[in-house]
């Protein structure tokens, strides 16, 4: 397999996953808006901070309100991480690797692109936002389903899986981070207990993990348990532990994987060893930030190992 093709496939998978997760992230906030007490004054700008996109945001907008933040994350083509930009990059990468992916997946990406272009305003206005966000998530899952059902398990598949899980691991830490930040905001509130359930219940729902959480934890939604579940559960496919072990699975199938595998194993170890649920405020934020750095380091190692090392 050509390095260039591997790289493009890896990125296409990352971008597709980023689209789905960005939309999920917005939907957490969107749901929180309905449920949290009005007095709290939810900060949409948190979404920009957890995506580490403050600088790009400030170049474009003065007011840090809901409309600008959502516009920035969904439709802004000057933001390289917006849904619109990711979709553009995903298409670009798949367009030039059409010979190795199922033909229908290319058509589906085009449909998703049309859907997003035609309906982006729906996503920005609150009244129809749910419909839009849901449409994008469905479409992403349709594409994943097609790939799972029709792709041979060859190198192309494993690079795709690698990209998907790197991105998913990263985004899971960011979605958790979003929860932590909102929680810190409501700490002083007298309805704190009630708010916590709302916050963490929505974090779970945004990952599609609420049902499996209940079945596996068999307890009501409590912050510590939710955070632990999203970091450590070995069975649910969007948890940090799961995505890391999915990386291991893919790596083992690829040639000259030793160095990258060693890195991932050590990240797996630190993830479990250093985690501390006793304070879900600043220490947890720092912990999540460190995991994001770990994941970025794995990404660099992948890049130099297979894509650019000539």
């Amino acid at each position: 397999m050509l390095s260039r093709v591997a790289e493009r496939i890896y990125w296409a998978a990352r971008y597709l996953e980023r689209i789905e997760n960005t939309v999920r992230l917005i939907s957490v906030y969107d749901k929180l808006m309905f449920d949290l007490p009005r007095s709290i004054g939810l900060g949409w700008y948190n979404l920009v901070t957890i995506n580490s996109a403050e600088q790009v945001f400030h170049e474009r907008y003065k007011v840090q309100d809901e409309r600008n933040v959502v516009k920035f994350l969904l439709g802004d083509d000057t933001n390289p991480s917006s849904v619109a930009s990711c979709l553009k990059y995903a298409r670009e990468n798949l367009r030039t690797t059409r010979d190795v992916i199922p033909a229908e997946s290319w058509e589906m990406i085009n449909e998703l692109h049309l859907f997003v272009t035609d309906n982006i305003q729906q996503g920005i206005n609150r009244s129809q936002r749910y419909h839009f966000l849901d449409g994008v998530i469905q479409s992403c899952q349709q594409i994943q389903g097609l790939l799972v059902g029709t792709m041979p398990r060859d190198f192309v598949w494993y690079f795709m899986k690698l990209g998907r899980n790197i991105e998913r691991a990263d985004m899971t830490t960011r979605i958790l981070d979003a929860g932590v930040r909102v929680q810190m905001q409501v700490w002083s509130d007298e309805d704190a207990i009630n708010s916590q359930q709302i916050i963490w219940g929505n974090v779970l729902r945004s990952l599609g993990a609420d049902q499996s959480y209940r079945r596996s934890v068999r307890a009501s939604v409590k912050s510590e348990q939710v955070v632990r579940y999203i970091i450590e559960d070995a069975a649910f496919p969007r948890t940090l532990a799961y995505t890391l072990s999915a990386l291991v699975d893919s790596l083992e199938r690829l040639p000259k994987h030793e160095a990258v595998l060693r890195d991932v194993r050590s990240v797996q170890e630190t993830t479990l060893k250093t985690v501390d649920y006793s304070d879900l405020g600043e220490p947890m934020k720092d912990y999540l930030n460190d995991r994001q750095l770990d994941i970025a380091a794995i990404h660099s190692r992948i890049t130099e190992n297979w894509f650019t090392n000539y």
């Binding site: 397999m1 050509l2 390095s3 260039r4 690829l254 000539y310």
Partner: peptide, 8 residues
């Protein structure tokens, strides 16, 4: 040579 994931 072509640049592949397994080397040249």
């Amino acid at each position: 040579y072509m640049k592949t994931i397994a080397g040249l």
